[in-house]
Design a protein around this nucleic acid. Structure first.
Length: 223
DNA sequence: AGGTGATCATAT
DNA sequence: ATATGATCACCT
């Protein structure tokens, strides 16, 4: 899926585009871009996000930065059921597992990506055929002081364990709102990490994810 | 049923 | 391999 829409010049323009697609189905949007809707997402997990990026003119590509870097906005589609319940955790970014000396919360990719997030709720119930799933109204969010404090605490606890070579002891249960989970093509993939006594080691790559209860609170409060 | 660990597609 | 976009699918 290649880009065809120009990036929005202003936040207002981005919001106008997002609001204009609310109520449309994924099938309608796909047709508009001359794209075929897959039967389901089993082998097209990022399809919805890519389609929304195309419509809104996102430009980050595969760079580790915000989708609309010139606006300071990160785009996230989020699957919800018909009652508005969040169905999945939200991937934020890959976790740095080596060369992390001196890295602080304020300098982290998680911090920067979550400064301004444009949430696009999309019906995600598997019972609804993909092409018939409806796009919801956009929600622009910036973390409150309390929310940022929670994120910062989880991030610092997780990064401390990584720093002392205990990444393999971290499970998705660590963290109240932010969790660390595998993020790779499969469990055989390895990346450099910190081992015992600061030695070099290798582990399955990890990513930071927002837990559903946290994103649920964000969306519910702003709807 | 909910959540954790695993996985899929694609671009660089 | 690493980054993006995420959801799948198994286990408790």
């Amino acid at each position: 899926m290649k880009k065809s829409t120009q990036p929005p010049n202003t936040l207002e323009e981005l919001m106008m585009r997002a609001e204009a697609m609310a109520g449309l189905t994924l099938g309608q949007l796909a047709h508009h871009h001359q794209i075929q809707s897959p039967k389901d997402l089993k082998r097209h997990k990022g399809w919805v996000g890519q389609l929304i990026e195309l419509e809104l003119g996102a430009i980050a590509g595969s760079k580790p930065e915000q989708d609309f870097i010139h606006l300071g906005v990160e785009l996230k589609t989020i699957p919800v059921n018909q009652t508005g319940k969040v169905l999945e955790t939200t991937y934020v970014t890959v976790a740095p597992l080596s060369n992390i000396q001196g890295l602080t919360w304020e300098n982290s990719v998680v911090y920067h990506k979550l400064q301004n997030v444009l949430w696009i709720p999309v019906q995600g119930a598997r019972e609804i055929p993909l092409a018939e799933r409806q796009i919801g109204s956009p929600v622009l969010w910036s973390p409150s002081a309390e929310e940022e404090a929670l994120l910062k605490q989880d991030w610092e606890e997780i990064m401390e364990l990584i720093a002392i070579g205990k990444v393999e002891s971290i499970t998705a249960r660590h963290g109240e709102v932010l969790q660390l989970r595998p993020k790779a093509a499969n469990s055989q993939v390895l990346t450099q990490s910190i081992g015992h006594n600061g030695s070099r080691s290798q582990v399955n790559p990890r990513g930071f994810y927002l837990k559903t209860q946290f994103t649920q609170r964000i969306l519910s409060a702003l709807l």
